[in-house]
């Protein structure tokens, strides 16, 4: 668990982060979202002490980060930034090996770890290990950046707009990959973005910041249904909030058990699809009910359009 307690940062008269407190549960993703200059990066950097707080403290699993020399602390915390920050004079493998080297791992273990991470991020080790960053596409560079951040086997991963430079399709893919990796490794992630959709997609909890202050820290659905500040409502978007709410629930979670046959010609939707996608499909097909099928193609329930609409209603 990461506990952020009364954290502030002042530069002269300017208060950049103002008395921010929240807790990130272990093995979850927390997203910090806000407009440009709201202090997101500064907040993130105080967790690994790239910035020293003016007041307050950060605890990781109960231990104050200030108790450890910064460079040793940082080797235990993954850090990935926008534009990846890969070392241009080092190969992909050497880049990924940075933290294991600093940790003094034996050569053999480093090699195995690099190969493992390349596989994890779906980069063929044979083809990519010896390449230099400039020989990769933006999406590949970004994946190497994530692999490098994960190399030291950190429990905590900090990410500052890691997908900011990617086009929408690659970006969505990278987000899916991050979710899968986070679940698989069971790491705790704090991610900064100014994209609300990204925040809703990735965050178990989302912290909304404005002018250095934390306005609300909640589940995405709560931010939509019970915003505590007009700014939060504006950030989350009022015009399509019902649809946003639908996009937070998967078909699997909303499906109701079938009450017998008779759905033969209903359109099929994937269990992993969001209710927003299911609704779109139903509108498109002119149908009122969909069959939800799991990864193996087995029907696992159905969804009527009325059930879907109920999920999008203000609570």
């Amino acid at each position: 668990m990461i506990s952020i307690e009364g954290l502030s940062k002042r530069y002269g008269d300017l208060t950049v982060v103002d008395d921010v407190s929240f807790e990130v549960e272990s093995r979850t993703i927390a997203v910090v979202v806000g407009t440009s200059g709201s202090g997101k990066s500064t907040l993130l950097r105080m967790i690994n002490r790239l910035v020293e707080p003016s007041a307050g403290r950060v605890l990781i699993d109960g231990q104050d980060v200030a108790a450890e020399p910064p460079h040793l602390l940082r080797r235990r915390i993954g850090y990935a930034i926008q534009g990846h920050g890969l070392f241009p004079h080092r190969t992909v493998a050497q880049n990924i090996a940075t933290v294991p080297r600093l940790l003094g791992w034996p050569e053999q273990r480093i090699g195995a770890r690099v190969a493992e991470l390349l596989e994890l991020l779906q980069l063929d080790p044979g083809a990519f290990a010896g390449k230099y960053p400039h020989q990769l596409s933006g999406g590949q560079q970004q994946r190497v950046g994530v692999a490098r951040a994960l190399a030291g086997d950190p429990k905590v991963l900090l990410m500052d707009e890691p997908f900011g430079a990617l086009d929408p399709i690659i970006r969505a893919k990278a987000q899916d990959e991050l979710l899968a990796i986070q679940r698989r490794l069971g790491i705790t992630v704090v991610l900064v973005t100014h994209d609300m959709d990204e925040a809703f997609k990735l965050g178990a909890r989302v912290a909304v910041m404005s002018q250095g202050r934390l306005l609300q820290f909640d589940r995405p659905a709560t931010l939509l249904t019970r915003p505590e500040d007009p700014f939060v409502a504006r950030m989350t978007g009022i015009s399509d909030r019902a649809l946003k709410l639908l996009s937070l629930t998967s078909a699997r979670d909303a499906a109701v058990a079938d009450d017998g046959p008779g759905l033969g010609d209903a359109p099929q939707v994937a269990a992993t699809a969001s209710l927003r996608e299911v609704l779109s499909e139903l509108v498109w097909r002119g149908a009122t009910r969909a069959t939800v099928v799991d990864e193996r193609g087995q029907a696992c329930g159905s969804l009527a359009i009325a059930d879907i609409l109920a999920h999008g209603r203000a609570r």
Partner: peptide, 27 residues
């Protein structure tokens, strides 16, 4: 040396000497 590189180097736990020898001087 791009600031992002230096930040990445520090963020991964290089100390001043490691950053100098491993990143700044080679670049």
């Amino acid at each position: 040396c791009p600031p992002a590189l230096l930040e990445a180097a520090s963020g991964m736990g290089m100390n001043g000497r490691q950053r100098l020898l491993g990143v700044e001087l080679p670049l």
